[in-house]
Design a protein around this nucleic acid. Structure first.
Lengths: 350, 350
DNA sequence: TTTAGCACTCAAAGAGTTAGAGTGCTAAAT
DNA sequence: ATTTAGCACTCTAACTCTTTGAGTGCTAAA
C-alpha cells in the first residue's frame, strides 16, 4: 500500500463524488496530479479492489468506492477546502448576529445547511438543560385531575395532567406544592435525575401515598426537558437522490428512527456515519455528517446533514465545522436572558 | 345517455379499480350482468368517451375513467357493499368500547382505516371546542416575562409565554388575573372569538395599556383550542401507490398543505375530493374520502382516507360511514369526564 | 338496434446489432 | 523491477427490427 495507491484512491473517490459515474483508469490518468499511465493506474486499481477499497459494478465498468474506501478517504485522504471569506460572510448573514435567540440560531443553521448542501439538515438542541427550574406548580383542574406545570429560566414550559386516586384537600395540596417548590426551585435541569425523583416519591409517600403519581408526572416532565430536541429539515431533498431508497427515506421522515440516540452519543469533532453501518438509523446508502456545538464548555447540541453517501465531504465538512464553531462562539457570550417561548400540544395519559 | 351506457360505465370503473389496467370491450362483455356483445359495448364506450367519462391511454388500448367518470360513478352509479357482521365486529373491536377515551377512539379509527384500506388515514378532532375554560392563569416567570395558562374542562392545556414592556406589580397582576378569571372561566371554547378579545383589550387598556400583549396571547391560545387537530397516519402507504407522484406525496407528508382547511369546511355525509380538483392540497391522482362524526348534534371532526384515485370506493365508503356513525354514537353518550392530557413543545415568540 | 367480421393501430416485449468504455494480460521500454 | 503501450476481450447501453396480441372503428348482415 504505497502513497501512489492512496493518491489514486483519493482521486477515484473525488471523481466518483463529482460525476456519480464509475471511474475508469483513463479518466484518472488525465487528472492534474497524476503522472503515470492508465496501465499503471489499472494495476493499482486492481490492487485497491483486492484490498476492499474499490469495487466494480460489472466487469467492463470503472470503479466505485466501497464503504471502507469512503472511510479511508474521509478519515485520511481528502483535504477539505477552506472556506472563502465570501462563504463565511454568507454563513454569518444566514446565522444571524449576537442578538439572535439561540433557538433561532440553530434553526438558521439548519436552513443554511439545507440550502447550501441540498441535503436534509439535522440539528439537536439541548440548551434547555442548562437552565434552572424557575417555577413548579400543581393546579387542580377537575375531579381528581391535576396539572403539573414546570417552567425553566430560559422560558421552556412543560405541563402534564395527572389523575389521582383521590381528591386532595387544601392542606395536602399546599403541602405538596410547598414540598416540590422547596426541592426543585432553582435546581438546574441537568441535575434532575430519576434517582432524585425516587427519593422524592419516598419522602412524599411518608406523608401520603397517593401523591406519588404527581411526582412521577414531574419526573416524566423533567425527562422531556433533559432530552434534546431533534429537528430534521429539508428532508424532501433526500427523495431527489436516486441512490437512496425512497421507501426507506419516507420511513425515516416519518419516524426519524434512532437518530436521536445516535446524536446523543458523545464524540468530538466531525463525525461521519454511514446509514448501513448503524443498527437503528438505516437509510441504505446514506451518510450522516455531524458535529457538536458547545455552550460555554459543555455540549449543547449537534448539527449536520444527512445525504447520499456520494456527498461532497470536502466541501460540506468545512461548512459544518464553521457553523458549529460560530454557534458555540455566539452562544457562549450571553447567558441570562432568552426570549419567550410558546407551548402547545396534546395527548392522552394513562 | 341510456341506462345501458351507465351500466357499462360502472362496469368499466369497477374493472379498472379491480385490475388497474385499461378495460376493453371484451372484458366487459364477459361480465355477469352484461348481456350484449363486445361490439355494442364498443359503440357505447366510444359514446362515453365522447361525453368525457372515459379515455384511452393510446389508440389500441382499453378505456380508463376520467375525472368526470369517477365523479359520476361515485355520485350515482356504484352501489356500496354492505358490511358483513364479521366486518362490523372487527371494526367495533378495533375502535374500543364506550369507556375508550375520545382521543383514543379517533386514533383507533385511523389505525383501523390504515390497516384495512392500505391507504393513509386522516382524522381531525375538534372535540376540545365543546369544552369549557376551567382555569386561566397568569404566572410571572422572569423579568417582564409571563406565562399564560389555559386549561379546559376536557383536560386540554395550552400555555404561552409573553414578554411585556414593563414588569407588573402585585396589584396589577391581581387585577388582570381577576379580570380574565371573571371573564373567561366557564366560557365554552366555541364561544371564544376575536371580537371578544378585542373588547377585552379595550377594557383592560383603560386600566393599563401595557396589559394588552397578555390578552393578545390569550387570544392566540384560544385560537389554538378552537382549531381542530389534524392527524395523518400511515402516509407511508401512499408511496407504494405508483399512480401517485412520490415527490408530491413527500411534500404532503411534510406539510399537509391545505388539508386542514379542506376538512374544516362543512358538509354532510361522505365527501370525495380528487387531489387535482383542489387548489392547495394537491397530490396528483389522489382521492380524499372523508365523513364527519358528531358529538351530540354538532360536528366534532372528520375521518377518512387519502389514497390513489383508483381506490375501492365501494368497499371503503361503507367502512368510513360505519366508523363515523359508531364514533358519533359512542361520543354522544358520556359528556362530563374525559381522561387526562399532556402537553409539551416549544418555540419562540416575537 | 344489435352483432359478427375484418382491417387497422399501437405498445410492449424480444432478438439482434453496434458502439464504446473499460478491463486484464503480455511483452517491450525504462 | 517498474512502468508503459498495445491488444484482445467483456459487458452494458442504445438502437433497430420484428413479432405478438389486445383493442379499436367501421361495414354490412341479422
Amino acid at each position: 500500500m504505497n502513497s501512489r495507491k492512496l493518491k489514486i484512491l483519493a482521486a477515484v473517490v473525488d471523481e466518483y463524488i463529482r460525476t456519480g459515474e464509475p471511474v475508469g483508469s483513463k479518466a484518472i490518468s488525465k487528472l492534474e496530479n497524476i503522472n503515470v499511465s492508465a496501465a499503471t493506474i489499472r494495476n493499482d486499481m486492481a490492487a485497491l479492489e483486492q484490498l476492499g477499497y474499490l469495487e466494480q459494478p460489472h466487469t467492463s465498468a470503472g470503479r466505485i468506492p466501497t464503504f471502507s474506501g469512503y472511510r479511508l478517504y474521509i478519515d485520511e485522504l481528502m483535504n477539505p477546502a477552506d472556506l472563502s471569506d465570501e462563504e463565511k460572510c454568507r454563513l454569518d448573514e444566514m446565522l444571524g448576529g449576537k442578538d439572535t435567540p439561540e433557538e433561532l440560531l440553530i434553526q438558521n443553521a439548519a436552513t443554511a445547511l439545507t440550502e447550501i448542501t441540498q441535503c436534509a439538515a439535522v440539528v439537536t438542541n439541548s440548551v434547555p438543560k442548562f437552565s434552572v427550574i424557575s417555577k413548579v406548580e400543581v393546579i387542580p383542574t377537575g375531579k381528581r385531575l391535576y396539572v403539573i406545570l414546570l417552567i425553566t429560566s430560559n422560558g421552556s414550559i412543560k405541563n402534564k395532567a395527572c389523575r389521582l386516586e383521590f381528591d386532595l384537600n387544601n392542606e395536602q395540596l399546599e403541602f405538596f406544592t410547598h414540598y416540590i417548590e422547596e426541592n426543585l426551585s432553582g435546581v438546574s435541569v441537568e441535575e434532575l435525575s430519576e434517582e432524585m425523583f425516587e427519593k422524592m416519591v419516598a419522602a412524599v409517600s411518608a406523608y401520603m401515598v397517593s401523591l406519588s403519581p404527581l411526582v412521577k408526572g414531574l419526573c416524566e416532565l423533567s425527562e422531556d426537558l433533559r432530552h434534546q430536541e431533534l429537528t430534521v429539515s429539508g428532508s424532501e431533498k433526500l427523495l431527489s437522490c436516486d441512490e437512496l431508497d425512497k421507501m426507506e427515506v419516507v420511513k425515516f421522515i416519518e419516524h426519524k428512527n434512532g437518530l436521536s440516540d445516535l446524536l446523543e452519543e458523545t464524540f468530538s469533532g466531525i463525525q461521519v456515519k454511514f446509514g448501513s453501518e448503524t443498527n437503528n438509523f438505516a437509510i441504505g446508502n446514506s451518510s450522516l455528517i455531524v458535529s457538536k456545538y458547545h455552550k460555554g464548555n459543555k455540549e449543547a447540541g449537534s448539527l449536520g446533514i444527512i445525504g447520499p453517501m456520494r456527498v461532497d465531504y470536502k466541501k460540506i465538512i468545512p461548512y459544518i465545522e464553521y457553523l458549529t464553531q460560530k454557534i458555540s462562539y455566539l452562544m457562549s457570550g450571553d447567558d441570562e436572558d432568552i426570549i419567550t417561548t410558546d407551548t402547545t400540544a396534546e395527548s392522552d395519559t394513562q
